[in-house]
Simulated assay, not measured.
Amino acid sequence: MAKKISRRMQAALEKVEPRAYEPLQALNLLKETATAKFDETAEAHIRLGIDPKYTDQQLRTTVSFPKGTGQAVRVAVIARGEQVQEATNAGADVVGSEELIDEIQQGRMDFDIVIATPDMMPKVAKLGRLLGPRGMMPSPKGGTVTTDITDAIGAFKAGKQEFRADRTGIVHVMFGKASFPAEDLLVNLKALQEVIDRNRPSGAKGRYWRSVYVSASMGPAIEVDISSLRDLKTTEIAA
């Protein structure tokens, strides 16, 4: 049985044409179709020409959004000794050592990011089955295994975000709020595009970018013209 489309969604769908929009047009349309009664999240869904089952075609990295994400990020830090106090002073929401690892194993999940110091990783490894599927397992590539606790906490709370391509080669990233000015959303989307290009896997062959769609969290998908996004200069956005 087909799922019934709400009147709100039907009205939003009618505004979106089946074509690729210029980036700023797409983001203005995202804002226009964000008609829920709360401030919806701006999402990007990017299909890449990679097959992540091969190690040289995997994409996992971080992006720092210049305009932030508009979201409060809860950071957990697993460390020991003086770095426990350093993490607390730097604004971590949850801090601990072996006892925090035990609490996470028992189901504690009141955080969005987990940062760990390298010396704690042998113990953190046992959390892989819990944190891995949620995308929260600390990793050096993601910037979440580090000795520089203060900088890492500050960066993630300011809008840095870790992401990876899923098993079908699609990247799903939240890059702001629908209430942001379209120009700010474009700055963030451009930053994401540049990071994805810089981190192109060595095994990626042929056409790397296949499609880019943006949407509000409760809105319809809007296709973005890939070439226009990649050709856009950051200075042109500011202008």
Rank of each mutant, 00 (worst) to 15 (best):
E162Q: 12
R129F: 14
T168M: 08
V212K: 08
D225A: 08
F38A: 09
L13E: 09
L48H: 07
L27H: 08
Q58L: 03
K31E: 01
A36D: 13
T61Q: 02
M1R: 11
R129E: 13
G132S: 00
D51P: 12
E82K: 15
L127P: 00
K53Y: 09
Q57D: 07
A42R: 13
S228Q: 11
E40C: 12
Q71K: 15
I222Y: 04
A125T: 06
R19P: 00
S139E: 02
G128Y: 02
E99C: 02
E236T: 10
E43S: 03
E99A: 05
A36F: 10
L186N: 02
Q25M: 01
L185Y: 04
V73N: 08
E99R: 06
V173N: 11
S227M: 13
K67Q: 01
G169C: 07
K160H: 01
V95K: 11
K4P: 00
Y208L: 05
Q57R: 09
S211T: 10
I113T: 06
R47G: 12
R108P: 00
I149V: 13
A34I: 01
F111N: 05
T234M: 14
M1T: 10
T147I: 06
V77D: 01
Q58V: 04
T55Q: 12
I222F: 05
I101P: 00
T41W: 10
V77G: 01
Q161I: 05
I237Y: 07
V171G: 03
D151Y: 12
S139T: 13
E40M: 15
D151L: 12
R47T: 10
V75N: 09
F38W: 15
A36R: 12
L24I: 11
A155Q: 13
Y208G: 11
A216L: 12
A90K: 07
A152Y: 00
M9G: 09
G132T: 01
A72N: 15
E40T: 14
I149F: 06
T146Q: 06
T33W: 01
D119C: 08
I196G: 06
M218T: 14
F111I: 01
G107M: 11
K126D: 09
V214S: 12
H45P: 10
L229G: 07
K205A: 11
L185E: 04
F180S: 06
G206Y: 07
I237P: 01
A2I: 09
V145H: 07
Q85S: 15
